[in-house]
């Protein structure tokens, strides 16, 4: 494999194709559109299914149908579009069909703007649609990681028959970086016992999220929660930088983590023993590791491109047992290391 210069959105699209993406349904929205455009060019010539839907509502329900049919399928969008998809995502979660969704996050609330933010943290990690469920949410900080996580997202979605969301802020989608994309692979097309393919020589199968008896729906929820516990045990991902001897820690994900790392290195140069903790899985959130960290260091600084959404999970993990400060940029403004360094210095006091 070779290292090439890739735009984030296109790297994600190509990586999905190499992971064996069979069908894509989407709707144009900035700053995600190159992803859709890339697949519009590539998929027809590969004899794979590409449809530009009439809305995100239709797109996610086409995804639901193709996933119910057992295909490896995805959609992509950006924040307001993902809001529209929440109905379908709730049905998909309940029906336990594997789906990958990419959210290239932009400014909100409302129409907001097309600049990068991380303000979808709540809507992605806390369920989003109605009912009790959490998708797996993976947050890349580089184009390379966006490609790698997208590739792996399909395996996770199929392993747990769940939704996996690759949550990248608009920076990751729009910027170009060198990346080495994963190798193309063949997908295993064995019948898995649940997909709708026509009842040829077998009992019919039903994909539904409707259970009229409360006791039945309770059992479905118990099963979904059990699966979620497994995911919480097996799929926590994070990366640590300069934390071995740290007295202070910064916690940030995605682009905010890259910016924070520069500030952490500057602080180190000034003699401050600070490190960076970067959650990669936003759900499942690395609660246990943050709890350990909070016992080890004197204070935490959370940096996000929102008003403090992951902050709530950090506080939950640390149980407010130590000082936790927050620095956030909103509306599509991006923090600079020069903004973060003084916040680290304030934390140290």
């Amino acid at each position: 494999m070779t290292r090439e210069l890739w735009k984030g959105n296109e790297a994600i699209a190509e990586s999905a194709l190499r992971a064996g993406l069979e069908a894509y349904f989407g709707y144009p929205i900035t700053p995600q559109t190159e992803l859709l455009e890339y697949l519009a060019r590539k998929m027809p010539e590969m004899k794979r299914v590409f449809i530009q839907a009439e809305s995100e509502v239709a797109a996610i329900n086409m995804v639901y149908g193709a996933a119910a049919g057992g295909a490896r399928v995805m959609s992509s969008s950006s924040s307001p579009g993902v809001s529209l998809m929440q109905e379908g995502l709730s049905y998909i979660a309940a029906s336990e069909v594997p789906v990958v969704l990419v959210d290239i996050m932009r400014g909100g609330p409302g129409l907001g703007n097309i600049a990068p933010t991380q303000a979808d943290y709540f809507q992605l990690t806390k369920g989003g649609g109605h009912g009790d469920y959490h998708p797996i949410v993976l947050a890349p900080a580089t184009v390379q990681e966006a490609a790698d996580l997208t590739y792996e997202a399909f395996d996770l979605a199929e392993k747990y028959r769940c939704i996996v969301i690759v949550a990248a802020d608009g920076n990751i989608g729009q910027m170009m970086e060198p990346a080495e994309l994963p190798a193309p692979r063949q997908i295993d097309k064995r019948d898995r016992g649940w997909e709708l393919t026509g009842a040829v020589g077998r009992e019919r199968r039903i994909i539904t999220s409707l259970y009229m008896q409360p006791e039945d729906l309770e059992q479905v929820n118990v099963r979904l929660q059990g699966k979620q516990k497994q995911i919480e045990q097996n799929e926590v991902r994070y990366q640590e930088y300069l934390l071995d001897d740290a007295e202070y820690a910064v916690i940030a994900f995605g682009t905010a983590a890259r910016v924070a790392l520069t500030a952490v290195k500057w602080a180190r140069a000034k003699g401050i023993r600070v490190g960076l903790f970067r959650p990669i899985s936003l759900f499942p959130f690395p609660y246990a590791r943050v709890a350990e960290l909070s016992k080890k260091v004197r204070a935490l600084l959370v940096v996000e491109m929102n008003a403090g959404q992951m902050l709530e999970d950090v506080r939950l993990a640390a149980r407010d047992a130590l000082p936790i400060s927050f620095f956030g940029k909103m509306g599509g403004t991006v923090p600079f290391p020069d903004d973060v360094l003084p916040e680290i210095e304030k934390m140290v006091g």
Partner: peptide, 15 residues
């Protein structure tokens, strides 16, 4: 007695 999917309100043509 066929394979069957239950869709969200209004979304059967998309599914």
């Amino acid at each position: 007695d066929t394979d069957f999917a239950e869709a969200a309100h209004g979304r059967a043509p998309a599914m």
